[in-house]
């Protein structure tokens, strides 16, 4: 290994000396760098596309995942971070270490949708307790009749996202009461299209993913209505039920975090965030996510203008917080 190191160091030194000149010259080239969650990506991409066309300011968006995005954000490499969950304690600490503050802005909803095969005629709705029975860590449910005695004798095949996904974190928190606590004997994939194929190919299939993937595959899958508490009506995921707050507990907010140390005072970043909030209702719908209410966007815009930094979650993810309450908690 020694000789490799020497060689690669030599190579790098050679190259570095060649390019240092041009590097310094271009340090001031202005681009708004955004990175983070792949769930939020389509929204940011839509905004970036239109904003760049309108103003000419260059915007780039990467997909490093929510965690990877925060790593770059807290090192000051990006001005905005896409996040499908709130910033966690260790990320808050990392940002603090580097003296980076942030403004937390909820920008849309995503409805986690529980889906079954088209041939499934029995489970039109499931209670949270039933979902918990199915997905709880160590659960032994292998057949639909184990979930509810009125269900037929049909082997159950489970599909879900992998453990690195924000969707997984939120679903387990909402259904099993603890993030990342889930049975592990299911077919996991980071690619939601693989889950779609899995559930649509198995009569006893059950899976969960973001609403957009269900809406695109309505012909192959059925959505399951969720009964939040006993004796309440089952609610199907849709734009209306998410916006009026009845689709619980699987509706989750999506965020962008804006660098408040430098970004919030930069004229281009400011213009971008304002454009984002003003056009979110239209663009969010276009990419098949659920926009916030008008009043909620108004509250978020006001919060942005107040430039109050910090997170309303304090590093601990929480299910079912109202956007207005969340913003009120942030006291700079």
């Amino acid at each position: 290994m020694k000789s490799n190191k020497i060689k690669s160091l030599g190579l790098a030194a050679l190259v570095a000396s060649t390019f240092t000149f041009s590097y310094n010259v271009n340090a001031e080239v202005k681009t708004i760098a955004i990175d983070g969650s792949s769930t939020v990506y389509p929204i940011t991409e839509a905004v970036a596309e239109d904003f760049q066309k309108k103003t000419g300011t260059k915007v780039t968006v990467g997909i490093s995942g929510t965690g990877g995005g925060f790593k770059k954000f807290c090192r000051g490499e990006t001005m905005i971070s896409d996040a499908s969950r709130p910033i966690l304690k260790k990320e808050i600490d990392m940002c603090a270490e580097n003296g980076i503050t942030y403004i937390e802005l909820p920008i849309a909803y995503d409805a986690l949708t529980v889906v079954t095969n088209k041939a499934n005629t029995w489970a039109k709705s499931l209670t949270v307790a039933e979902l918990n029975k199915i997905w709880a860590s160590g659960s032994s449910v292998k057949n639909w009749k184990d979930v509810n005695s009125t269900f037929p004798d049909q082997p159950m095949k489970l599909f879900g996202p992998g453990a690195d996904s924000g969707t997984f974190d939120y679903f387990t928190e909402a259904i099993n009461g603890k993030a990342k606590s889930s049975r592990s004997d299911y077919t996991a994939s980071e690619d939601d299209n693989v889950l779609v194929t899995g559930v649509s190919g198995d009569k006893g299939g059950l899976g969960y993913f973001g609403l957009a993937y269900y809406l695109e595959n309505k012909d192959k899958l059925s959505a399951v209505g969720i009964v939040a508490k006993d004796k309440t009506a089952a609610v199907l995921p849709s734009e209306a039920t998410v916006m009026d707050g009845t689709y619980q507990p699987l509706a989750r907010p999506l965020f962008i975090y804006v660098n408040a140390t430098k970004g919030a005072f930069d004229k281009d970043v400011k213009a971008f965030v304002e454009y984002f909030l003003a056009n979110a209702p239209k663009l969010v719908k276009e990419v098949k996510y659920v926009p916030l209410n008008t009043s909620e966007y108004a509250a978020v815009t006001k919060h942005w203008q107040s430039k109050k930094s910090g997170s309303g979650f304090g590093g601990v993810p929480e299910v079912g917080v109202k956007i207005e309450d969340l913003i009120k908690r942030i006291k700079d």
């Binding site: 390019f19 041009s22 590097y23 010259v25 271009n26 080239v29 681009t31 760098a33 792949s38 990506y41 389509p42 780039t60 997909i63 690619d191 939601d192 299209n193 973001g210 957009a212 993937y213 809406l215 695109e216 595959n217 098949k288």
Partner: peptide
């Protein structure tokens, strides 16, 4: 040589990003 300092994407990444989208 300014282009050397530009951000970039490549074909396989673009392909992967499209493949994971919900829209057919």
């Amino acid at each position: 040589f300014e282009w050397l300092q530009s951000g970039f994407t490549v074909l396989p990444i673009q392909m992967f990003s499209w493949l994971s989208r919900p829209e057919h």
